[in-house]
């Protein structure tokens, strides 16, 4: 089976592998030490999975805003997203 029809590129492959790794790591983490719902700076009580979802969705919007409003490198947006993700997972 050839995957040519899916039109893979290196950046998108890296993107999906990263997502898959994050999901695998979160699953293992959940099995080893199950999450406890808690309340951080977000207005709602969240589990780890909730915060991951909010973080990923937020990162997508950070990238869109970056591309839409600036001409600067996309890697700066990536950096902001990583920081946002870590802050959210720890204190969200």
């Amino acid at each position: 089976m050839t995957l040519e029809w899916m039109a893979w590129t290196v950046p998108t492959a890296v993107f999906f592998i990263t997502i898959a790794l994050i999901l695998t790591a979160m699953t293992i983490w959940e099995t080893v030490s199950p999450t406890i719902e808690r309340r951080g700076f977000l207005p709602i009580a969240t589990t780890r999975g909730d915060r991951l979802f909010i973080g990923l969705l937020g990162s997508a919007y950070i990238h869109l805003a970056w591309v839409g409003m600036t001409d600067l490198s996309i890697y700066i947006a990536l950096g902001i997203s990583v920081v946002w993700m870590m802050v959210l997972m720890r204190w969200g």
Partner: peptide
């Protein structure tokens, strides 16, 4: 996933494509 792959390329036909980065996103936004 295929849609994500398409969104960063200019597709001319089967096997004929060029990587364009975020160009389509800029254009769309």
């Amino acid at each position: 996933m295929t849609v994500v792959n398409y969104s960063v390329q200019d597709i001319f036909g089967p096997g004929q494509r060029v990587f364009v980065g975020t160009e389509w996103f800029e254009e769309t936004l």
